[in-house]
Design a binder for these strands. Sequence first.
DNA 1: GGAACGATTGAT
DNA 2: TCAATCGTTCCT
Length: 187
Amino acid sequence: MIDFNKKTVDIAKDLLGCYIIHDSSEGITLGKIVETEAYLASDPASHSFKGKTKRNEAMFGKPGTAYVYFTYGMYYCFNIVTNKEGIGEAVLIRAIEPIEGIDLMKKRRNVEENKLTNGPAKLVIALGITKEHNKIDLLDKKSPLRIETPIKKEKIEIVETKRIGISKGMESPHRFYIKGNPFVSVK
DNA sequence: GGAACGATTGAT
DNA sequence: TCAATCGTTCCT
C-alpha cells in the first residue's frame, strides 16, 4: 500500500508503477502510472496556492481521494490528494500505460494505442473518469475508481525533471516518470 | 458586468 | 503555431 504519511514529492515517486482501475458500466479499464507531477501548498503553480475555493476544495480533503478538475473549457485532469486534511496538496497523473480494457479505451479515444493515455487529459478520457469522481476514495476496494500497488513492485528507474504546461514554479523539478517508458507524455 | 487566462490537445 | 471552449479569477 502507498504510504500517505510521506511527503507529496515522495508519494509522487511511489505512485510510479502503481495501477489505476476504473470499473465502469462499459467495462473495466486499467493502467499503470508512468508519469506524475507533485503540486504543493507552497507552490505558485498549484491550484491550492491561494487557498481553498469551490473548485479546488477536493485538494484539501483526505489523502488518497481524487481531485478531478475542468480546464481549458474542454478537458479534465485527474489528481491523487496527498498530505493531511486541510492542506492543499496533490499528485497530478500525467500518463499511464494501458494494461486492460484497451479496446474500450480505443473506443473512447479513437486513436492508436500509443497515443491513448500519454497526457493528463487523454488518460482521463481513456479511463472514462468524469467530474463525478471528484473526492472519491481511491483506496477503498469498493470504489469504482481506485489505485492499487502491484503484488511485486518491479524495479524502475525514476527520472526527475521540470514540470510541463505551467507559467509559474517551473524551476521546481516536480515531474517524475519511469525512464524509457514509451507512454510518457513528452519526450 | 466584462476581460483574461489556464496543471491541454489536436490540427495546421 | 494556433484555435477550440468555458469556468474561475481578477479588474473596472
